[in-house]
Structure formats: C-alpha cells, structure tokens
Design a protein around this nucleic acid. Sequence first.
DNA 1: GTAGGGTTAG
Length: 777
Amino acid sequence: MPMDLYQLLRTCTSTRRLRSLHALLIISGRIHDVFFPTTLINLYSRLSDLRSAALSFSRTPNKNIFSFNSIIATYIHHGLPLDAGYCFKSLLLAGPRVRPDEFTFPVALKASLDLKYGKAMHSLVGKLGLGWNVFVSSSLMRMYSRFGAVRDAEKVFVEMPERDSGAWNAMVSGFCQNGMADDAVRIFSEMVTEGVRVDRITIASVLPVCAPLDDFLLGVSIHVFTIKQGLDVELFVSNALIDMYAKLGSVESARQVFDDMLDRDLVTWNSIIGAYEQSGNPRTALQLHSEMQRSGVQSDVLTLVSLASAVAESGTVRSGQSVHAYITRRGWEADDIIAGNAIVDMYAKLGKVELAQRMFDKMPVRDVISWNTLLTGYSQNGLANEAIEIYETMEQHEGITPIQGTLVSVLPAYSHVGALQKGMRIHGQAIRIGLHSDLYVGTCLIDMYAKCGRLNEAIVLFEQEVPRASSGPWNAIIAGYGIHGHGEQALSIFTQMEQERVKPDNVTFVSLLSACSHAGLVDGGQRYFQVMQSKYGIRPAVKHYACMVDLLGRAGHLDAAYGFIRTMPIEPDSGVWGALLGACRVHGNVELGALASKFLFEIDPENVGYYVLLSNMYAKAGKWDGVNDVRSLARRRHLQKTPGWSSIEVNNKVNVFFTGNQSHPQYEDICKEMVILLAKMKSLGYVPDYSFVLQDVEEDEKEHILSNHSERLAITFGIMNTTPKTPIQIFKNLRVCGDCHNATKFISRITEREIIVRDSNRFHHFKDGNCSCRDYW
DNA sequence: GTAGGGTTAG
C-alpha cells in the first residue's frame, strides 16, 4: 500500500535512511507515483540535504506545480534566494501545462532582490488572477514593505477582497519596519476596534514602536491588552515586552516580565542582558550571562556583542580578551561586522587603543560605524590628533559617508587642537548632509567655534541654528563665554535659559561656575552654587567643588578656599587640590601650596604638573631647598614631564610642535628667526624667567630650553608663514608657561600681531604688548 | 504531497 510507504518515509530521521528508501522506490518502479517526487523533496529539505532535494527535483520526469513549489520553498528556507529565483524562472518557462499558483507566490516573492523584480511578480499575480488569495496579497505587502514601498503595500491592503489577521499584521509590521510608528499604532487600534483577532504576531510587531515613540503608556496599555487576551504567555510576546520596557527605561518592569516567564529562549536572555547593559548595570548583565550559561542556553553573536559592551563598562582587559577569543573561535569576527565593531569599542573603552586598532585592521569589511568607533576611541582616550588622522583617512575611502556620530566624534577633536579651518570644513560637510541644525552636531559646532577662538560664530549658531529646548547647546555657549572671560554674558545666558524654561543640569553649573571664576565674579559664583542646590536640587559633584575652590582661590581668598575644602561633604579629588595649588602659585602662598601638594602627591602622584607648579613657587620665593626637594622627589618617582605640544593651523594644515622637538622641516629657520626676535625682545626689556625651567642645568642651557617651548616654536612658525600683521592663533595642550606668557607680550608688540593662545585652561588675547588674561604669573 | 508573518546587538 502506497500510504504505508509514505508513512515510512516520514519517519526517516537521517538522510542516509531516506536515501536508501529512495533507491528502493526507484528499483521497485514506485517512483513514478505522482506524489513521491514532491514528498522526497520536502523530506530532504527537512533534513537539510539540499543536494538530494535538487537531485530528486531534476530527476522528476513530468514536473508538476507541487514539485516546483517544493523546490522553491526548499531554497528559500535554506537562505538561497538566487537558486529559488532560478527555479521560479524555469517554472515560467516550463510551458502552459504548469503555471505558478497561489502556493507559489508567498514563497517565491521572498526571492525578489529589488523592487523592480517584486513589481514584475505583482503584475504576474494580476495576470494569473491570484490577487484574491490572502496569502498571496499579504506576501505582496511584505515584499513592498521590505523595499520601503509601504504606500504600495497599503494599496494592496486596501484593495484586498478579504483580510485575515495575517494581512493586518503585514500592514502593522510594514509600518513598523519603515519607521512609521504612528501609522502602525493607527492600524493596530483599527484592528482592535473592528474586532479582528489580534494574535501574538500582531503584538510582537507593534511593541517595538513604543520605544521610538517614547510612549511608555502605550507600551503598558498594550501589555494590559495582551494579558486580557491571554497572549502574555507567548514567548515572542514576552521577549518583545522585555525589550520594550528596557528601551523605555524601566529595567524593573523588564525584569518583572522576565521573572514571570516559564520558558526562556536565547532571545529572552539576550534581551534581559542587553537591558541591564544598556541601563548602566554591566555587572548585573554579566551575572545574568553566567546564569544563562548555567541554564544550558548557548550564546550567539548577539549575546557576545552585549557582553562586549558590558565588559567595556565594568570589566578588565583580561575578560575583554576572553570575550574576543570566544568571538574569534566561533568565526564571528570574520563575518559579523557588528561583532567586530563591538570588539573595537570594547578595547577602546578599556583604554587599549592599540588593541582596538589591531582589531579594526583585521576586519575584512568595515562600515561607517567601524570608523566612528575607532575615531571615538582615539578621541576619548585623549588622542585627538590620532582621531583626526582616522577621520581624514576615512574621508579618502569611497562610499563611506559620515553620519551624525562621526561629526560628533571628530568635532571635539578639532576643538581640542584648535583646528578652526578643519572644523569649518566639517561645518560645511554638516550643511551638505543636512546635519547642521542637528542638536548634537550643532552643540559640537558651538563648542568648536568657541574653543577655536570664534565666539561670534558660536553665538550666531546658538541664536539662529541649533534647537535650544535641551541643555546641551546652552551649556556649550555658557562655557564658550566663560573661556573667553565673559562671565557677565555667561550669567545672562543662564537667566535667559531659566526664562525659556530649559532645565539646567550639572554640566550647566560647571560651565557657569567656571565662567564666574575666569571673570572674577565671586559673588555670582557663590550665589549659583546655592541656586543649583536649592532651586534645581542638583547635589554638587566634586567638579562643582573644584570650580568653587578655583573661584575663591583665583580671587585671592585662599583661606576661604581652604576652609571651603575642609567643609566639603565628599572627598576632595586632585581637581579640588589642584585648583588650590594653582591659586597659591598665582598669589604666592608657598605654605598653603605645599599643603595642597602634599595631598596631590598622594592622590595623583604620577601627574608631574603639580611638581612643576610647586617647584616654580619655591623658586619664585627664593626657597632653593624646596626646589631641590621637589625635584628629587619627582626624579625618585621616575616622572617624565607630560610632553607639551602646541599647534597652529596654516593653510588648512595643522602643524604640531612638541617641546624641544627639532624634527619639524623648518626647525633651522625657526631657530634663526627666534634669535632675531629674542634680541629685539631683550632690547625692549624682556628678561627670561628661569624659574619655569625644572631641569637642573646651566643658565645658557635654560635659555635654550625656554625658547624651545612648543608655544614659542609655534608662534615663531606662525609669524614666518602667515601674512604680516594678521592675527595668529595657537593652541597649547598644557598651561602656557609663565615665561612664554611674558615673552608673547613682547612678541605681539614687536610684530604688531594679535596673538591668541588657547591653553588647557582659557584664552589669552595678546595685543600691543598686553594680555587680556586676568591672572598674573 | 505544497503557503505568509513576529522579538534581541555595534
């Protein structure tokens, strides 16, 4: 009996057994039974034996539509749309006896690789009169949605003679996948009001739009709805709920759903691990991963990507390397670009930029995110010049267009080194790709213009371009006024911010307090330190305390500053003591300076800047024992001075000078020019101040050291390479040395140049032998 | 003997 044979075939669990039964069918001649070829294709397909399936198909003498449908489905299910498309074409050429039917299209449509092909399929459906079938029409809708043609999908939906839940679902997910969240929700509500049966697929399709809409209430009401319908027990639904709650910021609700689940699959675990990782609980994420392993669920590449992010936030380089090794072992780093990017990001966040770079170099394919990740890695590890280099290399690679994140990463690097012309080029780029009014890009542009000395451009952007409903742009412009010494304007911007009801955050007050400090507005600073707490409920962080110490100290209230530190409810850090030490240096209070140094040498013993400051103070006061003590302490601790560097942008090229670095091609010429300048300066009364030389060397060597300071090299280079009497703008990574500060005053007078120096602290505008800077050295 | 769909990442 043939039925017995079919049943026997269906019980095959190995392709070997199936093949021997197949041979038996051929020998016995039973293979000519019309049902066998199709059954065999389907069974081989189920056992993933594509070769045998294809062979059965090609050996079928009179192929009927069942055989065609099965072989097409086989290829689609095994991810081979090209082969499926080929079979579909041969079906069309097979003659009038076999034609595609309503079973063919739902599968065959998945083989369409572009909209044009899909539209041809649609017109074929019309010619064959198959549009009445819900499966066919829903599949057409999915095809259109896949290529972004949601309106065409909607047309099919509207014109369908009858619609089942699947058709409605196709409409909901079509809108969702094309980012049309409002329409998706609209269709979903229509479904409910028209009494169409909502199933787990509807829910799993519509839940992901709650997060982009930022609509927590919608999410909760859908959740309630699923409970009423008894759909909350469905795995897909629960998984989507976890993700929805996590993305809307409620990890607790996500956890509640997770805890209530009876079955969990890989997606469940990935979602909850991702939820904790994204919400700043990397440790919990790592714990959950161990729990997942204990419950016997195998990780996939998505798990590892979340794990890499969690390790980046809280892990060690060791655990980072084991995540990396796991990904390599599974072969994911070669064929998953996201996994590669995650590793680059992880190493960069762990401070291992070399390892990040090595991973980046190894990646076979890179996208714009890969470049962004590496760029941000350099930038956030303080390697602005390297970040810039990466950006410029990226620009030379065709086919990579910068996105928001690219500009947001590269602009601070340009701000950092004071590369105005390059920054302006990015501004142009932002305009071209329509991102110049973007909140984040705009904020970075404001910051860039302010830090590159163009406060006016920053103001224009703030006033006219950038959306100002959130604190970011306000913080940037307040800080901009601050570093340029315009404290009053910074305060008035803050007043305006309050009037426009924009909520200030902790960054706002850091900017505001430091603006007060630079401008000597002691009362204002103290008032806003109170306002921050009483009116806005922001508890001062250590950064705010450092600003206050700076504010009091700079203004000469050294004892008040010290008293303020004594009453701090939190542990003062190096920023706080450093502010006090800096103030002591300015006002010549050696004892208090020594006290501050004592703390600094404990908290931050590697930072050589503090040793330099203290030594300078002793030198200025003529306390040579003190100088020697500090120097030998620094030597004992094997401290090397942070390499100081200055940069100047000439003809769109950034020239970087390191202190004492003689490798610049024009070094010889710069030295000659410097000798001439120095003679003129001395004739006008310039006397080198050797207290700024930490090295223990002879006097004439000291003069050589001072004139090899990076800022001096950069300024001289600028004088030689720019039009006479035009302004010169320099950037220095550390604070400008006091002797260079004095020297620059003379240089500005001799060369009749305006010289603008931005150092790690503020702007100095030198003009006619004076400096705008309120601090004295 | 054959058909459609949904959730997670850098």
